[in-house]
Nucleic acid binder design. Sequence first.
DNA 1: AACCCGAACTTGTCACTGTCCAGATTGAAC
DNA 2: GTTCAATCTGGACAGTGACAAGTTCGGGTT
Lengths: 200, 200
Amino acid sequence: MATTRPTPPDRPYHHGDLRRAIMSAALEAIAAEGPAALSLRDLARRAGVSHAAPAHHFKDRAGLLTAIAAEGHELLADALRLAGDLREAGVRYVRFAREHPAHFQVMFSPQLLRPDDVELVTAQALSGAALRDAVAGVPDRDRGVEARLAGVAAWSLAHGFATLLLAHNLDDALDGGDPEETFRELATTLFRPGGGADTP
Amino acid sequence: MATTRPTPPDRPYHHGDLRRAIMSAALEAIAAEGPAALSLRDLARRAGVSHAAPAHHFKDRAGLLTAIAAEGHELLADALRLAGDLREAGVRYVRFAREHPAHFQVMFSPQLLRPDDVELVTAQALSGAALRDAVAGVPDRDRGVEARLAGVAAWSLAHGFATLLLAHNLDDALDGGDPEETFRELATTLFRPGGGADTP
DNA sequence: AACCCGAACTTGTCACTGTCCAGATTGAAC
DNA sequence: GTTCAATCTGGACAGTGACAAGTTCGGGTT
């Protein structure tokens, strides 16, 4: 006898890769409408599972966002690891923010995360180390700038540019130009890789 | 005959300045737990009014946040107007973020706002003009840096520093030092107000 | 002085959300 | 082939934002 099947005909009981599916849907939704508009039930609907299914993989709303943030830090660490000099690291930082806007937003919204999560903390350590390495790459040339200050300055510049970019605050100033190229120019003039003043 | 009073004894029917009370409570809550954790009903409870009272002043959750953002832009414009040079404007930008963290967060979260709101747009124009004025104050000295780029660079630096500061990403680097003073040093070395290279 | 009109506020309601719970289903280890 | 743990389901509950209709009140008009 054919028992009644409450679930749609073809879909199997087990999704297969629900964790990934939920995360992908979440990234899409966050990129489009921000983390605040995220609904776990809506993600479950999109993945074709019951409303309580996501909880088994992420426990929590904060758990999902924490997983996203951790993944983001790993991706950022990978991206920075391939940078030649500090300026190029900045360019890659900006590119990362553009290519992974949802990750980027969540990574720097500590209010939404579980700060003690093990995976998050280790991933943060990864990206932090990558950042420090990028800064340490140019210790000799600008000796006038204390290393600590230089790191903060470089990070601030890249982070501010990326943040303002994602919030569409630079649309006028860029006017259709390539953001990464603009940042490269900007970083070049500001940090003067030659070590001198304005080239006359 | 004394009619039954559903409201607590002393509280008058009209609050007096509910709009301000709701905004203050909202700013406190946002500074403590972020905009996502904000609950209109909770704000109403804190102000001692019914759960639907805030809607009359702000219409919406987005309406409340938009009002906060508009106020923030006005405050920022005021703060920047008093700055002498560009570097000092940056310091004031950072100070504003520290003194008004809730405003700052909301101002740059366009996902939470009504972008077409009249008050918001005019307030944005105010702060935008103040920013542009601050940049225009130093057109002669660094002729190597195109004006447009210089503006983006300065804004990015200050905004990135402020953002990372509020998210507690600079706690290690600052190590208890005064953030504004650190930023001043940082901006000094980076923008070299004398126009030369590192002073030997 | 009585009126009244609109702003401020209230109660009630609805759909929706996050989270918890007990059970059903399944692949895989043994 | 049985057992077991992971995965997923359906139901329930409290809390939330938004809307609608009614109540209270202050200030200006006459």
